[in-house]
């Protein structure tokens, strides 16, 4: 039974058990990811409460409009990812390929906006601690700390998206070669779980980083 084309691997009784094992493994991985981002969110919570005014000033330096636009793009990519999983479950190869490509394009749009609109702009404005930081208003050193949180948290999030784009590329090639059907789509669904998780992280990053200082 060393046939890579077998729908149910030999250690599993049936497809349901195989599917639940894969899902459980992915959810446990996501639990470790929650703890990973949780450390950053804990640090953010503490320093934001210690230096509230500086964090609000730093947040005000960010562009909430671009943040909102990127949130919408990412939610859109989550929809196309969910539709990709649905296409895989119903065995529609052309739709699956279309929705994987859509998800990759929306993810790429998010990353391009982040790198070339936001970070380049931040650099020009002089709000990048360590590289180019010229902000000299009140609480400058604590504003720098906020910007560190901003760059590390959005940077690690972007890194997760780049990793996701890589896996999506592999899945796209596999889908192209017809490796998925109504009975074989676990890989697509697990990728979906990961992609939606990255979306959830952004759902928290957006208000905490961009909207904190919007009202001032």
């Amino acid at each position: 039974m060393h046939n890579s084309q077998a729908v149910v691997a030999e250690q599993f009784d049936d497809r349901t058990q195989q599917h639940e094992a894969a899902s459980l493994g992915m959810w446990i991985f996501l639990a470790t990811e929650i703890m990973f981002f949780g450390g950053l969110f804990t640090g953010y919570t503490i320093y934001r409460n210690l230096y509230t005014a500086a964090f609000e000033t730093g947040s005000h330096l960010l562009n909430a409009k671009i943040g909102a636009l990127n949130t919408a793009i990412l939610i859109g990519s989550s929809l196309t990812m969910a539709l990709a999983v649905h296409s895989a479950q119903t065995g529609k190869r052309a739709k699956l390929i279309f929705f994987i490509i859509s998800t990759m394009c929306l993810g790429a749009a998010f990353l391009l906006i982040k790198f070339f609109l936001e970070w380049t702009h931040d650099y020009a404005e002089g709000t990048v601690p360590g590289l180019h930081f010229t902000y000299a208003g009140p609480h400058a050193s604590h504003v720098a700390m906020f910007m560190c949180f901003y760059f590390i948290m959005t940077g690690v999030h972007a890194l997760h998206m780049i990793a996701g784009e890589g896996v999506l590329t592999v899945l796209l090639i596999m889908a192209w070669r017809g490796r998925f059907n109504e009975e074989r789509y676990n890989a697509i669904e697990m990728m979906g779980l990961y992609w939606h998780f990255v979306d959830i992280v952004w759902i928290f990053l957006f208000p905490l980083l961009y909207l904190l200082g919007a009202r001032f």
């Binding site: 959810w27 996501l30 703890m35 949780g38």
Partner: peptide
């Protein structure tokens, strides 16, 4: 699993 992760995060 999700509950456990959120619970541990809340402890942290």
């Amino acid at each position: 699993v999700l509950f456990a992760a959120v619970f541990w995060l809340s402890i942290l």
